[in-house]
Write a protein that binds this DNA or RNA. Structure first.
Length: 247
DNA sequence: TTGAGATTCAACAATACCTC
DNA sequence: GAGGTATTGTTGAATCTCAA
């Protein structure tokens, strides 16, 4: 009997290894993702190759290139692993009786907006549930949700993988407030069109939604220089205020 | 030729499984 | 439960492979 026809002979952890390799396209990064050592990942890949009778990946300068067979396995493998996770999480979820810890990722702004009402709701309806809140980059949040490290991510997302469910919680816009006594005109063609600086957590990844909001301004100039948040940056209370606007 | 990354090897530890 | 065996993991090092 071929090993793949005998589940008893299969280490299902190898499917998690294959999923990580398909995600990362890089053996060392896939090992770090699980986490396991790089030689152990190499051994696991060797067992996968034997099990599936396919090389699965070819080496390239930048890492690993999946074979057509490996690519064909990618989508069904994700679905199978998602089903297994749901199976292990329990078929029926009862908030009032649950003692689960949910792992959430969000920004400090997201936490300030979403957490207070969420905590009130949990205290009332699900007192046994705990939350583990962390911060990650948007790509890190998507990767975390995709591989099960996170249960939920709250942020401003553009495109997300098709196998990740998403929902719009609220729409928000930008509001600028200034001291009326300073005489600074708060108009689209005033200083807003060309602010002296934008505060960005990572200079390489500017806040795209800020740029998108500036784009319609008639006299918007080139993007201003980015500066990291910190003591030299304007305090949060000095910055333009943003607030949620319910749909 | 070079550098990045994959593969392989040795030695050892932890764990699971099987047999008694 | 104890002991033997197989499997899979670890670290550390050397070697191989491939693309720029």
């Amino acid at each position: 009997m071929h090993p793949t026809n005998n589940l008893r002979a299969i280490d299902l952890n190898l499917l998690v290894v294959l999923d990580a390799l398909l995600h990362e396209r890089h053996l060392t990064r896939a090992a770090a993702r699980l986490p396991m050592s790089q030689p152990a990942m190499s051994h696991a890949l060797a067992r996968l190759r034997l099990l599936l009778g396919d090389p699965l990946f070819h080496r390239t300068r930048g890492g690993l290139r999946p074979t057509p067979h490996a690519l064909a396995l990618e989508a069904p493998l994700r679905e199978v692993l998602a089903q297994v996770r749901r199976l292990l999480a329990g078929a029926v979820f009862e908030p009032a009786a649950s003692r689960r810890v949910f792992r959430l990722a969000m920004s400090d702004y997201g936490a300030s907006v979403a957490l207070p009402p969420l905590m009130r709701c949990l205290r009332r309806d699900a007192p046994g549930i705990d939350l583990e809140i962390s911060y990650a980059s948007r790509s890190g949040m998507i990767a975390g949700v995709a591989d099960g490290q996170l249960d939920l991510a709250l942020a401003v997302f553009g495109e997300t993988p098709a196998d990740i469910r998403r929902a719009v919680l609220f729409h928000e816009g930008f509001v600028c407030a200034a001291d009326a006594g300073q005489g600074v005109p708060v108009t689209p063609d005033g200083p807003l069109a060309r602010p002296p600086a934008l505060v960005a957590a990572r200079p390489a990844q500017p806040p795209a939604e800020v740029d998108a909001a500036r784009a319609p301004l008639a006299h918007a100039g080139p993007a201003p220089p980015r500066r990291p948040p910190g003591p030299a940056a304007p305090r949060a209370h000095d910055a333009p205020r943003r607030g949620p606007r319910r749909p």
